[in-house]
Design a protein around this nucleic acid. Structure first.
Lengths: 140, 140
DNA sequence: TATTGTTATACTCTATAACTATA
DNA sequence: TATAGTTATAGAGTATAACAATA
């Protein structure tokens, strides 16, 4: 593939992905602000310290303090003492947090599912293959 | 396709697109803040009034006033009187704005191009087809 | 002495309300 | 009287600097 064509493909693909992201965000009017939902999602995998979470979200530690305060106040996250390091804390999803996260994901998927309903079996297969490829491309 | 499988496909695809968007934004450390770059990009298609631009970007008119002030101060956008409506203005990309936009896009594409370079011809063809499908899905 | 997290403070982006000019 | 845009002001999210507690 000549470089020019590769550039066009890269550009088109990038823009299409950004378009999907924006639409999902816009259509699903989440109950939680984006940065709160994102922090919550990362805690779903496993409990994290504030420092770890700040690094994952690429924000400064004081910013993450504010974010987690908000989540703790709403009862979505528990802040516990770290078992072995007295300076640190452990942030853990509560049951309410898990429920909220599931609700947010469902709302986001609703829109996508609706868009995909009109496609043929072959088109869905194509998107499925593309998804795998995209994940490989971004490094997972 | 059963509904459960459709949900899985929708969820995976949504997450993959969001992942690409985030990576692009993170990797390209743009010279312009995201909201400024986005406004600039919309003006590339055609001149717009502040009201039109605010609606496209889904922000309140006063927010767009601030954004466009910033772009005008930097010489990237020209604010002209509207030819037929004395209450309105016309925002138009300057040559410097067009150059800046090209530079931003190039930086964003650089990362994408690099990721795609390792793929086979068939894989690129797959992504190209998926891009068209995605654009149809989000309604363009 | 270095590290983890928080508090204090400031800056940016966004919004709503009030205002000006024109339709 | 309604509309387009701006100015005034406030709220939310982020950052850096300074601080407290622990390693």
């Amino acid at each position: 593939m000549p470089n020019e064509a590769l550039l066009t493909t890269a550009n088109d693909l990038r823009i299409a992905c950004q378009r999907v992201s924006r639409r999902v965000r816009y259509e699903s009017t989440s109950e939680l602000a984006p940065h709160l939902a994102s922090a919550l999602a990362h805690l779903a995998d496993r409990p994290l310290t504030p420092g770890e979470l700040a690094e994952i979200e690429r924000v400064a530690p004081p910013s993450m303090t504010k974010t987690t305060n908000c989540l703790v106040e709403r009862g979505l996250v528990a802040r516990e003492d770290h078992p072995s390091d007295g300076r640190s804390k452990v942030l853990r999803l509560t049951d309410a947090g898990r429920e909220t996260l599931a609700r947010i994901r469902r709302a986001r998927d609703d829109w996508m599912v609706h868009q995909l309903e009109g496609l043929t079996k072959e088109e869905l297969k194509l998107l499925k293959n593309a998804t795998e490829l995209l994940n490989r491309v971004v490094g997972r």
